Amino acid sequence: MKRIGLFLLTNIAVMVVLSITASLLGVNKYLTANGLNLGALLVFCALFGFGGSFISLAMSKWMAKRSTGAQVITQPRNSAEMWLLQTVERQARAAGIGMPEVAVYEAPEPNAFATGMNRDNALVAVSTGLLRSMQQDEVEAVLGHEVSHIANGDMVTLTLIQGVVNTFVMFMARVIGYAIDRALSGNRDSSAPGFGYMITVMVLEIVFGFLATIIVCWFSRQREFRADAGGAHLAGKRKMVAALQRLGGAQGHSTLPEQVTAFGIVGGAKKLFMTHPPIEERIAALQAAA
Rank of each mutant, 00 (worst) to 15 (best):
I206A: 08
G209S: 01
Q259P: 10
K237H: 08
L6P: 06
E281D: 14
L204E: 01
A95D: 06
M117A: 15
N152F: 06
E205Y: 12
F273V: 00
Q71E: 14
G96E: 03
L204I: 02
V164C: 07
L272M: 13
V126P: 01
R93E: 15
F195L: 14
V165T: 05
V241Y: 04
V156E: 02
F210S: 08
E224I: 07
I4C: 11
R182D: 04
G98I: 03
Q287F: 05
T10H: 12
E101K: 08
Q222M: 08
M202D: 11
M170N: 11
R188L: 10
V203C: 03
G116V: 03
T68Y: 00
E140D: 13
R282F: 00
R3S: 11
V104C: 12
A192E: 14
R188D: 15
T10E: 15
S254M: 05
I180F: 08
H233A: 13
F48A: 12
L25E: 11
R282H: 04
V27L: 07
L18R: 01
K29C: 13
T261I: 15
V216N: 04
G5E: 04
A227S: 14
E258Y: 14
L25D: 12
V102K: 00
A64C: 06
F48L: 10
N111Q: 10
K61C: 08
G267D: 10
N34Y: 13
A243N: 03
L143C: 14
V175K: 00
A22E: 04
Y30A: 14
I214D: 15
H276Q: 00
T261C: 09
G153P: 02
R66A: 15
P110H: 01
M202Q: 15
N152E: 11
N166Y: 03
R182Y: 06
M134V: 08
Q71V: 13
Y197S: 04
P257M: 02
Y178N: 08
S254D: 10
I176W: 03
P193I: 09
H233V: 12
R90N: 15
L204R: 02
E205I: 12
A242P: 07
Q71T: 14
Q245A: 10
D137W: 11
V260M: 15
A288I: 12
F210C: 07
A288N: 09
M170E: 10
R132Y: 14
Q86T: 11
T68N: 02
N37E: 07
L8G: 07
V104S: 10
F7C: 03
G26E: 00
L211P: 01
M155S: 08
V156M: 09
I283D: 03
A173N: 12
V266E: 03
K237P: 02
G51K: 03
A212N: 08
M99P: 14
T167R: 03
Q259R: 14
A92K: 04
M134H: 08
N187V: 12
Q75D: 11
G163L: 05
K239W: 04
R174V: 15
Y30E: 10
P108M: 05
G69K: 01
A227E: 06
T159I: 02
